[in-house]
């Protein structure tokens, strides 16, 4: 498996990287962990004439808490770092759990959150997790900067809102309200190295430890051309007392919002059944964590 020829750039500042991107645009590809790009280049799917590594730009690999209000995750933070980070596990649970399920240990050591989101794969692990956290991605070009909600970032398989001259710099997440708990469930045929057949992220916020549901967020991966939020199921849950029955009903509503396909990983019917079951299970796990929320 040989890599085709390309010109290599290794900017050491953000400005330099943005300048290169604005100059080279469509002929260039950003290289983060390379676990997707290098595979696609070896398979001749991507054929950039320039490759811009962002690994030596300081700060892109940092997880920076913002007081108690939220966290800024650099686009170059690895899945391994996300999965091991105490604050991420504690407050941003779906993302830490999803990062721990991405690929195998060696892949997690290289794979970045930025690469995972920019890839825009329907089955990507970090996308649904970022969606239930209402994360915003910061996109920068040499001349402009914008923030886009991940809920509006994905357009189709491999297609996202980022422009060729833009770099994803960071992912910003607000800390979920008190009495929140999150979960992430990935279903594949094997335990590791598995692109999901169905994945579900959930975040549940209660009014108090035994209170009704104040807020619910559910997102699915691998069930439609993009990862999707199950807004209908979320609205159904708000204001209700949490119970197996309402979680079951939320799962049933969730199935109706998906358009899964049949492929070698699983049939449409099987995926629909799994969406229902896994939604219920994810909500139950989120509820347990919400009940044991600590200031």
């Amino acid at each position: 498996m040989l890599l085709p020829k390309f010109e290599y750039h290794e900017p050491t500042t953000l400005e330099e990287a943005l300048h290169l991107l604005s100059e080279l645009g469509g002929n260039a590809k950003v290289l983060a962990g390379g676990t997707d790009l290098l595979v696609r280049m070896k398979l001749n799917i991507d054929k950039p004439t320039h490759v811009i590594s962002i690994a030596r730009i300081p700060g892109l690999d940092a997880i920076v808490p913002r007081d108690k209000h939220g966290v800024t995750v650099g686009a170059g933070v690895s899945a391994a770092a996300l999965s091991r980070h105490e604050l991420m596990m504690d407050r941003f649970t779906p993302l830490a759990l999803a990062a721990g399920r991405l690929g195998a240990p060696m892949i997690r050591n290289r794979a970045t959150i930025g690469g995972n989101l920019v890839n825009g794969r329907p089955a990507a692990d970090l996308s649904p997790a970022c969606m239930v956290l209402n994360a915003k991605v910061k996109l920068k070009s040499a001349t402009a900067e914008k923030e886009v909600s991940v809920n509006e970032f994905f357009r189709g398989p491999g297609d996202t809102a980022i422009e060729p001259n833009e770099l994803m710099v960071s992912i910003n997440v607000e800390t979920p309200a008190p009495w929140s708990g999150g979960s992430y469930i990935k279903l594949g045929a094997r335990k590791t190295l598995e692109i999901s057949m169905v994945n579900v992220a959930a975040l549940l916020t209660l009014k108090s430890a035994d209170g009704p549901i104040a807020d619910a967020r559910i997102a699915f991966g691998a069930v439609a051309p993009t990862p999707v939020r199950a807004y209908g199921a979320e609205e159904f849950l708000v204001g209700k007392e949490p119970s197996d029955e309402v979680f079951q009903q939320a799962g049933e509503i969730g199935v109706g919002l998906c358009s899964p396909i049949t492929d070698h990983r699983g049939t449409m019917e099987y995926r629909c059944m799994m969406i229902e079951v896994l939604t219920k299970r994810a909500l139950k796990q989120a509820l347990e964590r919400a009940k044991s929320w600590k200031p």
Partner: peptide, 28 residues
């Protein structure tokens, strides 16, 4: 082995972490 990150035959330890050497550029 596979050259695509799937098999782990190319595993080396880079700055303390195991990685697939087939998916790391030498310049990196």
């Amino acid at each position: 082995g596979c050259g695509l990150g799937d098999c782990g035959a190319c595993t080396v330890i880079l700055d303390g972490s195991p990685v697939n050497a087939c998916l790391v550029l030498a310049v990196q």
